[in-house]
């Protein structure tokens, strides 16, 4: 299961809504006790896809490297990646799957008409052939419907 604390969740929502109608992306830092991953810091990262960003995102590997270093510096781990689907539901698309990495949780946020709508988390497998849904616990706010 992955649990996102209130502050990082607010950062993620604000970032997803700010870059709408484009896809946002970022890293989630936190801790894992084996059963539950807890996100305590969200780092919005630049979508560097060279093309229509309303339907695609790409993370700069150097940014992931920096996120990993920042996590280590804070005594945390890089535990997940988030991105948004503007005006679409939060599913793990074929494009998401083909460009995923099995080492992290992938949180997809649906943003409709510029407002956060819902989110789901997925765990892609090693062969990038499937990504079962992972239980996602969001903070109790009026923005986590």
């Amino acid at each position: 299961m992955i649990k996102i604390e209130r502050d990082p969740w607010q950062v993620m929502i604000e970032h997803a809504e700010a870059v709408f109608p484009n896809e946002c992306c970022g890293a989630m830092l936190g801790v894992s006790d084996g059963e539950t991953k807890t996100v305590t810091v969200a780092l919005p990262l630049e979508n560097v896809h060279q093309g229509p960003q309303a339907v695609r995102y790409e993370l700069r590997p150097e940014d992931l490297l920096k996120a990993e270093k920042e996590a280590r510096g804070r005594g945390m781990d890089l535990i997940g990646i988030f991105h948004s689907h503007p005006d679409h539901d939060a599913y793990f698309s074929v494009t998401d799957l083909k460009n995923s990495c099995p080492w992290y949780s992938f949180v997809v946020m649906s943003v409709k008409a510029g407002r956060y709508d819902h989110a789901k988390s997925f765990l892609p497998n090693m062969e990038q052939t499937e990504a079962p849904e992972e239980a996602l616990e969001l903070p109790a706010t009026d923005r986590s419907a």
């Binding site: 995102y57 790409e58 993370l59 590997p61 990646i81 494009t95 799957l97 460009n99 990495c101 992290y104």
Partner: peptide, 11 residues
Amino acid sequence: VTIVPSIAGGR
């Protein structure tokens, strides 16, 4: 030497 994943996607 650092190992870093490559990550992208889209709907």
